[in-house]
Measured scan of single mutants.
Amino acid sequence: MEVVDPQQLGMFTEGELMSVGMDTFIHRIDSTEVIYQPRRKRAKLIGKYLMGDLLGEGSYGKVKEVLDSETLCRRAVKILKKKKLRRIPNGEANVKKEIQLLRRLRHKNVIQLVDVLYNEEKQKMYMVMEYCVCGMQEMLDSVPEKRFPVCQAHGYFCQLIDGLEYLHSQGIVHKDIKPGNLLLTTGGTLKISDLGVAEALHPFAADDTCRTSQGSPAFQPPEIANGLDTFSGFKVDIWSAGVTLYNITTGLYPFEGDNIYKLFENIGKGSYAIPGDCGPPLSDLLKGMLEYEPAKRFSIRQIRQHSWFRKKHPPAEAPVPIPPSPDTKDRWRSMTVVPYLEDLHGADEDEDLFDIEDDIIYTQDFTVPGQVPEEEASHNGQRRGLPKAVCMNGTEAAQLSTKSRAEGRAPNPARKACSASSKIRRLSACKQQ
């Protein structure tokens, strides 16, 4: 084909351009004929944790799935940006308080904090938690009735009371019990989460009196709706648990309003109706937990002794299953770290194939690490110290990083047969305790 000078094309009309061969290198194709290559998922490591896909996002930050490269346990990490926390009232204080509380709590029905990582340079905090497959609110939203069968609701409620009793025994008032803060594992274990607005009572406090509340409006008791200066913290949790039980068994809320002012007005009056299909035992329990006067409201001991709580409820309806993943529609909620794991395991070791967030990740503290002497050669063979940054567990980050890069360049065919977990650990520049 004859090559045409581009400067001469402006002298031709459209018809003349076609005659000189423009149609031979300008093609129009339908979008259905285009085959897009999927974007390669680059592996990203935060300390010893391999990052997966997004699980959810809230006002405080994002939650992603991660894999512990040492234990191969599935975890969830809450990623918090200090810049964003400053824009939220009491944001930083709530996060630090939640970390302090979770560090000393150990119960099967309370979410466990596994690790805390802090990135000084990017001003990011990573709260590594045990993995929960789904939230209770997500399960309720997945069915038209917006409720659980009585047998399933009873099982979840009993676990909620177990976890709540443990928190109260530790002198902690949750203040925000609701389905949105109750998570579930694949085995059906309920976990109380989000202790950001919780309050730890003084060890020598005479009672459970509280003065502040930041919980969700629909789950607040009349004493808070009416603006009382002080109130019983434990009875606030009992009320919120009662509203939660009402919601998961009926699909409704005892109090509603077009806006928060109308909602608080209705809560302050204390008038509500219980659907007739709840039955006398459940209705009596709800009335005891939603008692207007805090002094007359049920205690956890009274809830445990109630006939509806103690009764064994046979399954009359099919239980609400864990819904498919909202993004991938995966009904099994498979591990989202698998594509990243395959990338590390299947590809040659190259620095361009993975990302390490930083050479140094500070753990379990908000301060910069200490310094240790770096050896410097002298005339008599002895070495003197220069400062060298280290990880919180004493690992020399720069030395590990250099060693990792040197190993990656060394030709050794046997290394390709290593397991995925050992490869992740070798790529991680800074081991965590």
Score class of each variant (00 low, 15 high):
residue 2 E to K: 08
residue 11 M to S: 10
residue 19 S to F: 05
residue 20 V to A: 09
residue 20 V to P: 11
residue 24 T to R: 04
residue 34 V to S: 09
residue 35 I to M: 05
residue 40 R to I: 15
residue 41 K to I: 04
residue 52 G to A: 05
residue 56 G to W: 00
residue 57 E to L: 05
residue 61 G to P: 05
residue 62 K to L: 10
residue 65 E to I: 04
residue 67 L to T: 02
residue 71 T to R: 04
residue 71 T to M: 03
residue 73 C to T: 15
residue 74 R to I: 07
residue 77 V to R: 02
residue 79 I to E: 01
residue 81 K to F: 05
residue 82 K to L: 12
residue 97 K to E: 11
residue 100 Q to W: 03
residue 102 L to V: 05
residue 109 N to I: 01
residue 109 N to W: 02
residue 110 V to L: 09
residue 111 I to T: 03
residue 115 D to R: 13
residue 118 Y to N: 01
residue 119 N to L: 08
residue 124 K to L: 05
residue 125 M to Q: 15
residue 127 M to N: 15
residue 127 M to L: 02
residue 132 C to V: 03
residue 134 C to W: 01
residue 140 L to A: 02
residue 141 D to V: 08
residue 143 V to S: 12
residue 144 P to R: 06
residue 147 R to F: 03
residue 151 C to R: 06
residue 151 C to G: 03
residue 153 A to G: 07
residue 158 C to V: 05
residue 161 I to C: 06
residue 162 D to F: 07
residue 163 G to S: 02
residue 166 Y to F: 06
residue 166 Y to A: 12
residue 171 G to S: 11
residue 176 D to V: 01
residue 176 D to W: 00
residue 179 P to R: 00
residue 181 N to C: 00
residue 188 G to F: 05
residue 191 K to D: 00
residue 194 D to F: 00
residue 196 G to A: 02
residue 197 V to S: 14
residue 198 A to Y: 06
residue 200 A to H: 12
residue 200 A to I: 10
residue 200 A to F: 02
residue 206 A to W: 01
residue 207 D to Y: 01
residue 207 D to N: 03
residue 208 D to E: 11
residue 211 R to I: 04
residue 214 Q to E: 11
residue 214 Q to N: 09
residue 215 G to I: 05
residue 225 A to S: 06
residue 228 L to Y: 09
residue 233 G to S: 12
residue 241 A to G: 04
residue 242 G to N: 00
residue 245 L to G: 00
residue 245 L to V: 02
residue 246 Y to P: 00
residue 247 N to P: 00
residue 248 I to G: 01
residue 250 T to G: 04
residue 251 G to A: 03
residue 254 P to F: 02
residue 259 N to Y: 07
residue 271 S to C: 02
residue 271 S to W: 02
residue 271 S to R: 06
residue 272 Y to I: 07
residue 274 I to V: 03
residue 275 P to E: 02
residue 278 C to I: 02
residue 280 P to G: 12
residue 282 L to R: 01
residue 282 L to K: 03
residue 283 S to R: 09
residue 285 L to A: 00
residue 287 K to N: 12
residue 290 L to I: 06
residue 291 E to Q: 10
residue 297 R to L: 00
residue 298 F to P: 08
residue 299 S to G: 08
residue 301 R to V: 15
residue 307 S to T: 08
residue 312 K to L: 10
residue 313 H to S: 08
residue 318 A to S: 10
residue 321 P to I: 13
residue 322 I to S: 08
residue 325 S to I: 14
residue 325 S to H: 13
residue 328 T to H: 13
residue 329 K to N: 10
residue 330 D to N: 12
residue 331 R to I: 08
residue 333 R to K: 15
residue 334 S to V: 10
residue 337 V to D: 08
residue 338 V to T: 15
residue 338 V to R: 05
residue 339 P to W: 15
residue 342 E to G: 06
residue 343 D to Q: 06
residue 344 L to I: 07
residue 356 I to P: 15
residue 357 E to Q: 07
residue 358 D to R: 10
residue 361 I to S: 12
residue 362 Y to S: 09
residue 363 T to P: 10
residue 365 D to L: 09
residue 382 Q to I: 10
residue 384 R to F: 13
residue 385 G to E: 11
residue 385 G to K: 14
residue 386 L to E: 13
residue 387 P to G: 14
residue 389 A to R: 14
residue 392 M to D: 08
residue 407 E to K: 13
residue 408 G to H: 15
residue 409 R to I: 09
residue 410 A to P: 01
residue 411 P to I: 14
residue 412 N to Q: 11
residue 412 N to H: 07
residue 416 K to Y: 08
residue 417 A to V: 04
residue 417 A to M: 12
residue 424 I to Y: 07
residue 430 C to G: 13
